[in-house]
């Protein structure tokens, strides 16, 4: 009992100091307010909309406005669509597709691959890594499809959940490195229950919560 109390106290202190360190910053220029928080080396982005649903076709297919959300891992900011042809962004999010800034997607030096490892366990980019690039719309550096890239899609319950133990290794538009973990695909960072209504599942999807560590000095260690 006593040790538990001490532990609890310790945890509170750590949590308190951690909170203090966090720099809260809300990006008001984005179409929907999202949230970026920095804690040590790790940046967490919450609720980044990615071509959210605006309507449903007569066949019952939900659709978005067809606009990607661009994001810079270097500056921790959302990048306006007008800068899509620049090297200002590193990742573009649209539905379940994540694109990197290179070849068919942009003018940058971007690239990516999916590493089968937990985010915390990835300490560097190994030298024998092969970075893939986008070949829009045929294939992407971060593969699309259930179980292939970063997510699993449950067709019965109509839910998309990020696969555990998959870290996206990203080469940014400027040729630097970052590791990214997609945490959630739904508004507020909470996957709806399987029993949730179709409406909730439809309109709360396409909101990314993810975390990353960007190595600004250009080295391959995080």
């Amino acid at each position: 009992m006593k040790t538990r109390m001490i532990l609890l106290a310790l945890v509170s202190v750590v949590a308190f100091t951690a909170c203090k360190k966090e720099k809260q910053k809300t990006n008001t220029t984005s179409p929907t307010a999202f949230n970026v928080s920095v804690s040590g080396k790790i940046v967490t982005v919450k609720n980044l909309p990615a071509d959210t649903i605006v309507g449903i076709t007569s066949q019952g297919q939900p659709y978005g406005a067809g606009k990607y959300s661009f994001f810079s891992l270097e500056t921790n900011t959302w990048v306006p669509n007008s800068d899509s042809a620049t090297t200002k962004w590193d990742l573009a999010f649209g539905g379940s597709t994540i694109r990197v800034n290179n070849v068919t997607s942009g003018p940058g030096a971007g690239g990516a691959f999916v590493q089968l490892a937990n985010f915390d366990d990835v300490t560097d980019v190994s030298n024998d890594s092969t970075f893939r690039v986008d070949n829009h719309p045929v294939s992407y550096a971060i593969p699309k499809g259930s179980g292939k890239g970063w997510y699993n899609y449950d067709g019965v319950n109509v839910l998309l959940t990020p696969l555990a133990g998959r870290t996206l290794i990203i080469r940014t538009a400027s040729g630097k490195y970052a590791k990214v973990e997609i945490l959630n695909f739904y508004k507020g960072g909470v996957t709806p229950a399987t029993s949730a209504s179709d409406e909730i599942k439809t309109y709360q999807q396409r909101f990314y919560t993810f975390r990353y560590t960007f190595q600004a000095n250009g080295s391959k260690t995080f």
Partner: peptide, 14 residues
Amino acid sequence: IEPVRDNNNISRTL
């Protein structure tokens, strides 16, 4: 070698 996403959405070993 089996990963899991815990209640905080964080990946770790199950």
